[in-house]
Design a protein around this nucleic acid. Structure first.
Lengths: 239, 239
DNA sequence: ACATTAAACTTGTATATACAAGTAATTATG
DNA sequence: CATAATTACTTGTATATACAAGTTTAATGT
């Protein structure tokens, strides 16, 4: 995984700029973006190049194009793969949501057996293991165990993750983006350990998800095992 | 929801043709598609038009493009939103999987309250309600309740669904395609009704998913409530 | 003041052309 | 026969141009 090229293609620069403007709130839902012709004039680019950038924004769910009318900003796409609490709008950041690092990231060999089949490269690199508890209204609702292949993620173990999205860190510091993934879901009876972490009675039903995230880096996946207490709130996810 | 236009744009016709060839097995995983120049010659189109079709195939996960090498067919994208059993490769069709209609599709008013907020149009149209049980090795594992808005789906209630994917029927008969969606997941104790349908003891943990599927038709969503027995096999899904 | 028509805007589709950058195949050389 | 160089292929990026089709705005007529 190399550092990004210092020179991005024109269409990509425009795409990143517009994307950032939407995320930063410069354009918000239902706003019209500058027209294709305006963007050509502003950036000294041609329509096919501008359209290429806009197509990418459409594909990622940031805007919708309407012939004759313009490019309209949509509600910020909720991250595919991010779990939250039904009824809240973000995984973290709401006043009643907070996250606590239970086990700081450290490098270890993969658990054997592991929940998903691993490639040779992954097996040889070991993984970074970390555990977090997420609280809603001071009640533990998620017990989250992450396994990140120790491939090209220098100084990962020294980063701070409390109240930070793991995915944001990966995107901003390592240019790793989540593209989707697969998951195995079970309803299980809470074991002694799980009931301790999630503050439920032993034997109480809890949700268990084993997830494998695809990223924009070929061959680089992120793994996660999550236990959830859904007694009061359902777990919410986009797929 | 209108019928598709009799005349498709060139790029779209090429996209649909290549997509069908991949699905039908004319091209299989790891095959090289004809090059862009070859497709231009074969179809009397220009490279930007051909590339537009190929870009759509990339976006949907059918192919990957490799500079200098060619366009390579990928494993058929597993339907987003389709649930299956961990370890099997399709929702239905495997020898050990079969589906049984418990309640034939019929038109009714929406349950009130309903698991997701409904639009005015949806409320006024009523929904088509149907219930199925899915078996794995003759054991009931899914109890699936679907709610399809009664909007532009003529003669839906007279179709046969046993051993047919609801999504395939929607795509082939009504040009409705699933684009993703959202879900609320809970681990619950099986009620008397659920334990009867899924052949588990009352009070045993079962999975409950409430799902809202986005489609290619603006404003048209499909809803589903699924109870799953995950005692022996996890539920598997792509997101 | 309102309705109708025309003009001016928007995105959608498509062709044409050129050069950059990566990979595979062919040819030349030792 | 092996290796290196060259050629020929591939996709990637970008400009230029034109017309179609949908929507909004401005002008005109009553």
């Amino acid at each position: 995984m190399t550092l990004p090229a210092p020179k991005l293609p024109h269409y990509r620069r425009l795409y990143e700029m517009l994307r950032k403007q939407i995320i930063d709130g410069v354009f918000t839902e239902d706003d019209l973006l500058p027209s294709e012709n305006e963007l050509c004039a502003i950036h000294g680019l041609t329509r096919p190049t501008v359209r290429h950038a806009l197509d990418a924004l459409v594909n990622e769910g940031f805007i919708g194009k309407h012939q004759g009318k313009g490019s309209i900003v949509q509600k910020l796409p909720k991250g595919i793969g991010i779990l939250s609490i039904a009824g809240t709008t973000s995984a973290l950041g709401g006043k009643n949501l907070r996250s606590e690092l239970l086990v700081k990231p450290y490098v270890k060999a993969w658990d054997d057996p592991f929940m998903f089949k691993l490639s040779e490269t992954e097996l040889n690199s070991g993984c970074i293991h970390m555990e977090r508890i997420r609280y809603y209204n001071d009640k533990p609702i998620f017990y989250d165990i992450n396994f990140i292949p120790n491939i090209n993620v220098p100084r990962f173990t020294s980063r701070s993750f409390e109240n930070n999205s793991l995915f944001d860190v990966l995107r901003n510091a390592y240019q790793v983006e989540i593209k989707g993934g697969e998951q195995k879901i079970r309803a299980i009876e809470a074991s002694a350990t799980i009931s301790q972490h999630l503050a439920v009675k032993s034997g109480h039903p809890v949700l268990h998800l084993e997830r494998k995230f695809d990223t924009n880096k070929p061959g680089f996946f992120i793994y996660s095992s999550i236990y959830c207490n859904t007694e009061e709130q359902a777990v919410y996810g986009i797929f």
